[in-house]
């Protein structure tokens, strides 16, 4: 049976506001309230149904083609310069690049041979298992999620429950994820916050984000670290 709303429960509107802009007080309440946890699960389920059934709503802004800006003719030259800079400055391949927004996430790949730390853009074979190590620097709550090329979000760690993992210092997280046979890019995200964020907040922030561009995701009250993987046979 669904737990009844208590006098301390935030209103539906306050819970919706929390999903858009995380509110620490609301997050604390949800962590200890069965009714609001049920609400949160229903909200996440409805969001998924909405994204599935009404993709045009979600994709409206991304699908529209924009006119090229005036500086578009300079793009090829800029791209060449950026590529040159990248190759000149990138470390040797055996040195893992942990994260683009702070060295706080390491993705370990296991399954064939010795486990290895993933470099950015590392190719991962179907069936290989991933484990995650985070180093938030101080006590933090952590969600690990992935976004595929369609913008679909998968929850990886913790796989169950409504609250994120509490992590203090550098920690190899329990549990692992196994990639399926689908090919294409997959971006792994670690979302770290001082106050526990609900999964619905994280999912909504990542939903539809471009897999190859890590700069578009902003989650109020949270830091992110990310690693891009390429799924498929080498």
């Amino acid at each position: 049976m669904n737990a009844a709303r208590t006098a301390q429960c935030p209103s539906d509107l306050a819970l919706e506001e929390h999903l858009l802009h995380a509110n620490p007080a609301t997050a604390r309440h949800i962590a200890g309230c069965a009714h609001c946890q049920t609400w949160e699960r229903s909200a996440a389920e409805a969001s998924r149904a909405f994204a599935r059934e009404n993709p045009r709503w979600m994709a409206t802004t991304q699908a529209r083609s924009r006119p090229l800006p005036r500086w578009a003719p300079l793009l090829p030259a800029a791209a060449l310069a950026a590529a040159a800079l990248f190759f000149l400055r990138s470390p040797p391949p055996e040195s893992p690049l942990y994260a683009t927004k702070g060295e706080e996430l390491t993705v370990y790949i296991g399954g064939q041979g010795a486990p290895r730390a993933a470099t950015q853009g590392e190719r991962v074979r179907p069936g290989e298992a991933l484990r995650f190590q985070v180093a938030p620097g101080a006590a933090a709550f952590v969600w690990i999620a992935s976004v595929d090329s369609t913008g679909a979000v998968s929850r990886l760690v913790p796989a169950e429950g409504t609250t994120p993992l509490a992590v203090d210092g550098t920690q190899l997280l329990p549990g692992s994820a196994v990639l399926d046979a689908a090919e294409g890019p997959e971006r792994i995200w670690a979302v770290m916050s001082r106050e526990p964020l609900s999964w619905a907040v994280v999912e909504q922030a990542l939903q539809g984000s471009p897999v190859r561009d890590s700069t578009t995701v902003q989650i109020p009250g949270a830091r992110t670290a990310t690693v891009l993987l390429e799924r498929g046979a080498p």
Binding site: E16, L19, L20, S42, A43, S47, F50, A51, M58, Q204
Partner: peptide, 10 residues
């Protein structure tokens, strides 16, 4: 619409 669509649907 993109930002509030899920909230409206819910």
């Amino acid at each position: 619409c993109r930002r509030l669509g899920p909230a409206i649907y819910r």
